[in-house]
Design a binder for these strands. Structure first.
Lengths: 228, 228
DNA sequence: CTGGATATGGCATTCGGTGCCAGGGTAGGA
DNA sequence: TCCTACCCTGGCACCGAATGCCATATCCAG
């Protein structure tokens, strides 16, 4: 009919608005069909279900992220962190959808479950990618823990932003959280490979919390240089 | 009618058998009502939905686990690990339900999402518990990462068992995985507690012997400055 | 025994979701 | 240009999950 087919984003946006106005259960697919100009039947065909419609935008992002990982030349951990960054960006760049959706998700357990399922898909994709990039057929314990940690850190920062979308330091928070997790992942994944080569070293420092950081660094520096 | 009301477990078991025989979508609530002797209307009242019925047993376990954590005298990390052990036991001790359910879950994305939602509830409960036991109002990044890691380890071992329920060394695997994660959690949480107490701090770094010393120092610097 | 609270079952209705078929628009080949 | 095969859309009918309403049964306290 209309030569321009309604885009996914337009449909999601219309649905989000209706949900916000009438409530999720109070909105029928007939209503969404009327609002978008797409027939009820076609809505189901394209988006599967009422819940899926709310997350359709996100599903497309998922595909993108998976393809990104497969094409990335970076080392595995860095690739996964970058992938998480893509996901995060997917939220931050489109607050018009993600913020009201977050309100819906908080209010409706069923929608919460649906969003949790999304992050679980990412976690599974991360696990699979890390596993395959180490040549394993199945994700190891370490790989799954790292994937879970990356997702947890992502969600932690994301929830903070969703509560206060105006926060300008989101990306700073995100990077800090990720480098924190990456440091955690390093000994788990990279360490595994190096352990076989028997080359890793361990540094342990115990110091009072009111130490002068620069003094501490000097001491660490001496320790590292000293026994090489 | 019957003086003995049908137990949750009986209902779940009957439902699982029907699902296995007729498929999940091929089984109607009328069919389950007939098989259990409970009216269709009462099934919905007690279990909420067809999906929830499949996991009703598990929902009860969740309540138990939460109460257990609140009453546990052990330190936080040990309590969470013990809680995960309770969950694991919930699966292992009842293969008659959990194993066929796993087959259903693998085949039906919707059911998979529902199970993922269960583990997410546990993860959230663990996070909340760890946060409150450190006196925080909101779970910190570290707390959420630890909770995610515990859940990931639990699920990793669990999936292995679900694939081969006959495996007798499950508990050994479970304990190994958990101690692995607990070692990871120690510096993250224990360090946090000591930090608040204003006592000494511990820095642990694992690095390849051919690292660039200045790069190493930069990372140490970030770690020291980053969380003060 | 009685009155009230609670659990159960039947009934009717809404609405999400699906299979089926018809119409229209498009690309590709003769 | 015309025909055809194909795909996308919309309308229709139907199934079944889920809920509200009301009548009835069960149980417990008084």
């Amino acid at each position: 009919m209309a030569t321009t087919r309604v885009s996914t984003r337009e449909a999601v946006l219309a649905a989000v608005r209706l949900f916000a106005a009438e409530g999720f259960d109070g909105t029928t697919m007939d209503g969404i069909a009327a609002a978008t100009g797409v027939s009820r039947r076609s809505l189901f065909r394209r988006f599967g279900s009422k819940e899926d419609l709310l997350f359709a935008e996100h599903d497309e992002l998922f595909e993108t992220v998976v393809r990104y990982m497969e094409a990335s030349p970076e080392p595995p951990t860095a690739t996964v962190v970058a992938a998480a960054r893509l996901v995060f960006q997917g939220y931050v760049r489109d607050p018009e959808i993600t913020v009201p959706r977050y309100r819906l998700v908080r209010a409706h357990p069923r929608l919460r479950d649906r969003e949790v399922a999304m992050t679980a898909r990412y976690q599974a994709a991360f696990s699979r990618f890390l596993a395959q990039s180490t040549g394993a057929d199945r994700p190891s314990l370490e790989v799954e823990v790292v994937a879970a940690a990356v997702i947890a850190a992502h969600n932690h920062v994301l929830r903070g932003w969703l509560r206060e979308p105006g926060d300008t330091r989101v990306w700073d928070r995100f990077d800090r959280a990720m480098s924190r997790v990456a440091d955690l992942a390093e000994p788990l994944l990279g360490g595994g490979a190096r352990r076989e080569a028997g080359r890793e070293r361990v540094l342990v420092a115990v110091y009072p919390s009111d130490s002068d950081p620069s003094d501490l660094l000097r001491r660490v520096s001496e320790a590292v240089e000293g026994d090489r």
